[in-house]
């Protein structure tokens, strides 16, 4: 069994493997596949049921289970959900494990997977990865107004 604590390394290696086999397209196709087969049953259901608070509920569970160092904010009235990741556990592990070479575009999966769920549901999704080399990033999800949607 691969322990879930070793998963990040397996995930990174999977991206590497897919890119070698089928190029960047195979990696992107996989992210779409994972989003459709996994997040559609988790994040999408929560957002469908609770609106933007679904984001809070989804990430509250995952980030706590991943022992992330983060600040999470929700303003339901304004339709804003924000995560400030002070130390991403996945990227931190990848940087810490000196004996493996992480997939260079590892962090992009976060941009791809969640955007695919949230944008069609009427939300803007902005992920800032400029500090991802230090295992930091920030995410803002905002509800589009009726005017924006038009």
């Amino acid at each position: 069994m691969i322990s879930c604590t070793d998963f990040i390394a397996a995930y990174s290696e999977l991206f590497e493997f897919l890119e070698k086999r089928g190029g960047e397209k195979a990696v992107n196709d996989f992210w779409n596949y994972l989003s459709d087969h996994y997040l559609a049953k988790t994040l999408k259901r929560l957002v469908k049921k609770h609106g933007i608070r679904g984001c809070w509920l989804y990430w509250k569970q995952t980030l706590n289970e991943e022992a992330a160092d983060f600040t999470m904010e929700l303003d339901e009235a304004a339709g804003i959900f924000r995560i400030t990741m002070h130390r991403c556990p996945s990227k931190w592990h990848l940087l810490k494990w000196r004996h493996i070479k992480p997939y260079p575009e590892y962090c992009l999966h976060c941009d791809h997977l969640y955007r695919r769920i949230l944008e069609p549901m009427g939300y803007r999704y902005h992920l800032d990865l400029t500090e991802s080399g230090r295992a930091r990033c920030s995410l803002v999800v905002t509800r589009k107004s009726i005017k924006d949607k038009g």
Binding site: C4, W56, K60, T62, N64, E65, A67, D69, E73, L74
Partner: peptide, 19 residues
């Protein structure tokens, strides 16, 4: 609601079974 949650890595055990 307006909610804020601040967590440090040491607040939790690293075990995300959904992986």
């Amino acid at each position: 609601k307006k909610l804020i949650m601040r967590r440090k890595a040491s607040d939790n055990v690293y075990l995300h079974r959904d992986f």
